[in-house]
């Protein structure tokens, strides 16, 4: 925890590309997926972002945090993605045909609000919540964050996590307890 706090509060930031995937890939993924809505595309954009970050490493002035800087690159990648997609327009047009004779009237039913429908506002709030959760995770000790993520978000068995990290279940629960406390503290202001 000390190290990540240290990084965050340093007046001038530095880049550590070897830690990017572990620290930021989930954040970038959740940021991207609401914007492109395609898993494969999202993954490609993240990969491109990391590579672009590496290439323009010397342009990094240290005014922003690593994450903010990567997000700035990612934003441009997402815009580029839509530009490219737009220039291919016409090739992938979707034809919705509601005038078929034997379909007469059916479309009305199709358009009835479905019970799982979420308002745009809910979706927006959720995507912000996701990013807040990941930001908080980043303030935790790296190993604790990884274990908490496996247990809580990826729903791995206790046993599987213990094997992976070579710890006992009671070690695991101590880590989970600390991580949950820290997460609740961190999220408390805006979300809990």
């Amino acid at each position: 925890m000390n190290e990540s706090l240290y990084n965050q509060h340093m007046p001038s930031h530095s880049l550590h590309p070897e830690t990017w995937v572990d620290r930021y890939s989930d954040y970038l993924y959740n940021y991207t997926i609401v914007r492109v809505n395609d898993h494969i595309v999202a993954q490609d954009l993240i990969s491109e972002t990391f590579l672009a970050g590496l290439k323009s490493k010397k342009n990094f002035k240290g005014n922003a945090s690593e994450r903010t800087w990567l997000i700035a690159i990612l934003k441009r990648k997402i815009i580029d993605h839509y530009r490219k997609k737009n220039s291919k327009k016409g090739q992938a047009e979707v034809h919705i045909n509601y005038t078929d004779d034997d379909m007469e009237g059916d479309w009305l039913e199709e358009r009835v609000k479905d019970p799982y429908y979420k308002s745009a506002e809910d979706k927006l709030e959720n995507s912000e919540l996701r990013l807040a959760i990941l930001e908080c995770l980043d303030t935790l000790d790296e190993r604790h964050a990884a274990i908490f993520k496996m247990k809580t978000i990826d729903n791995f068995d206790t046993e599987a996590i213990c094997n992976e990290y070579n710890i006992t279940p009671s070690n695991l629960w101590v880590i989970i307890h600390r991580a949950r406390k820290a997460m609740a503290n961190c999220l408390e202001k805006n979300w809990l």
Binding site: S25, D26, Y29, N30, I33, Q43, N126, L129, R130, I133, L134, K149, T152, I153, D154, L187, W191, L192
Partner: peptide, 11 residues
């Protein structure tokens, strides 16, 4: 509840 609601995804 917050984590469940967020439907957070990881790679």
């Amino acid at each position: 509840k917050a984590i469940k609601k967020s439907e957070i995804q990881t790679l």
